[in-house]
C-alpha cells in the first residue's frame, strides 16, 4: 500500500516573492474505450504532483527524457491544457481555474516559445503580422505605431527589420525561432515558457539563439522555464534545474548542484550519460548505464516510479512513494536512499 507523508508542504513556501508557484500539479489524459459511450478506462498520468516556484528574472530548467512529462507540465502551467489537479499561482493570483476569457489578459504576462519553428508560425501570415498578433489580440496600441514596434522587435532579435513583409518559408530554422521569440517578447511578459526552443537547430545556430535568450533576459528581467532534453544546454542557461522522470520531479536544485553533486540515482545516471565534448575528460568518466525501458505512464510502478531501473532499489521503494524533500538548503530530492556523488 502506498503511504503518503502528510508533512509534504509546498516547496515554494519559503522563497517569498515568487512569480509563479506550482503546487502538486497533475495532468492526466483519459484513455477511452472503443464502445459507443467511450467510457474512460484509464489515464495516462503525464504529470503527477509536481511543485516548484519561479522567481522574477530566474531561469528554471526542466530536464528529462521523452515521456517524462516536461512538455505537458509546461503547457499545463501556461493553461494550454486543463490541469487535472493541483494549483498554479501567477503573481499571487490563482490561475488554475480561470476561464478562456479570463486568461487573455494573463497572456501579456506569460508567453511561450515552441520547439518547432516550422509548425508554430502560420505560413500564410507575414512576419509582421505574426509578430504584431499579440498587440491585436490584447488591443495594445504602441505609441509609435505597430509597424515601428515590430521592426524594433525584429532588430532586437537579430532579424533584418526590412523583412517584415516576408513569409516564414523565406527564413531558415534559426531565423524562424527568432520570429517566435520576437512574438513572445512583444508585450514584455514576465515569464516565458520555452519548450525545447533550440533542439531543432544546428549547434552553431543553437548557440546564437541561446545567447539571444540570455541577453533578452538581462534586458527585460524575464523569467524562463526552459524545458529541454539536452542537459548541456539546460546547464548552460539555468539557475535551477528540475529533473523529471515519469511525470514526477526526482530532484530540484541549483544548476551547479544538479550537475556536480546530484543526490538522486536517476540524476546520477542521466548526467553520467551525457558525453562531454572533451575526449580526455570523457574517456576517464564513469558511466552509469541504466537497464530496461521507461515504464508506462498508464500503469506506473508503485512507490518510487524509478525503482524498476534503479540500481539501489529496495523493498521500501516499492511500498512507499518518496516525497520531494529538502536535503540541504534549496536542494530537493525524491528518494529514500539518496547519496551525493561527484560526477564531473
Amino acid at each position: 500500500m502506498t503511504v503518503v507523508d502528510e508533512s509534504n508542504t509546498s516547496i515554494a513556501a519559503d522563497r517569498g516573492d515568487a512569480l509563479l508557484r506550482v503546487d502538486q500539479l497533475q495532468k492526466y489524459f483519459p484513455i477511452t474505450g472503443n464502445g459507443l459511450l467511450r467510457r474512460r478506462i484509464g489515464d495516462v498520468r503525464a504529470v503527477e504532483d509536481i511543485s516548484f516556484d519561479v522567481v522574477p528574472g530566474e531561469t528554471l530548467g526542466i530536464v528529462g527524457e521523452s515521456g517524462c512529462g516536461k512538455s505537458t507540465a509546461g503547457r499545463t502551467i501556461m493553461r494550454l491544457l486543463e490541469p487535472t489537479g493541483g494549483r498554479i499561482e501567477f503573481d499571487g493570483r490563482d490561475i488554475t481555474k480561470l476561464s478562456r476569457r479570463e486568461l487573455v489578459p494573463l497572456r501579456r504576462e506569460m508567453q511561450m516559445i515552441f520547439q518547432d519553428p516550422y509548425s508554430s508560425l502560420n505560413p500564410r501570415h507575414t512576419v509582421g503580422t505574426i509578430i504584431s498578433a499579440p498587440f491585436k489580440v490584447q488591443g495594445v496600441k504602441p505609441a509609435r505605431g505597430v509597424q515601428a514596434e515590430v521592426q524594433d522587435l525584429m532588430a532586437r532579435v537579430g532579424l533584418n527589420p526590412e523583412h517584415f513583409n516576408r513569409y516564414p518559408n523565406e527564413f531558415s530554422g534559426g531565423q524562424r525561432q527568432r520570429i517566435g521569440i520576437a512574438r513572445a517578447i512583444a508585450l514584455r511578459p514576465k515569464l516565458i515558457v520555452c519548450d525545447e526552443p533550440v533542439s531543432a537547430l544546428d549547434v552553431s545556430i543553437q548557440a546564437q539563439v541561446v545567447n539571444l535568450l540570455e541577453d533578452l533576459q538581462d534586458e527585460f528581467q524575464l523569467a524562463y522555464i526552459f524545458i529541454a532534453h539536452d542537459l548541456s544546454v539546460v546547464r548552460h542557461i539555468s539557475d535551477r534545474v528540475a529533473v523529471m522522470y515519469l511525470g514526477r520531479i526526482m530532484e530540484l536544485a541549483e544548476s551547479d548542484k544538479i550537475y556536480k553533486a546530484p543526490l538522486h540515482p536517476y540524476t546520477h545516471a542521466l548526467t553520467s550519460a551525457v558525453p562531454l565534448p572533451d575526449p580526455r575528460a570523457e574517456r576517464k568518466r564513469e558511466r552509469i548505464i541504466l537497464t530496461g525501458d521507461l515504464p508506462s505512464p498508464i500503469n506506473p510502478p508503485s512507490g518510487c516510479v524509478f525503482r524498476t531501473r534503479c540500481p539501489k532499489a529496495q523493498q521500501r521503494c516499492t511500498d512507499e512513494i518518496p516525497l520531494l524533500r529538502e536535503f540541504s538548503p534549496g536542494h530537493y530530492g525524491a528518494c529514500h536512499f539518496p547519496e551525493e556523488r561527484k560526477l564531473v
Binding site: 534559426g174 549547434v203 543553437q206 548557440a207 546564437q208 545567447n211 548541456s232 548552460h236 551547479d256
Partner: peptide, 23 residues
C-alpha cells in the same frame, strides 16, 4: 566555431557561448 558553440555540461553558467555568426 563549432567547439565554441557547444555548451558543456561540466561548465556552469556565465560562460558565454561563442556562436558562429550568419548562416
Amino acid at each position: 566555431g563549432l567547439l565554441g558553440s557547444v555548451p558543456r555540461m561540466d561548465v556552469g553558467r556565465h560562460e558565454r557561448l561563442e556562436p558562429i555568426p550568419g548562416q
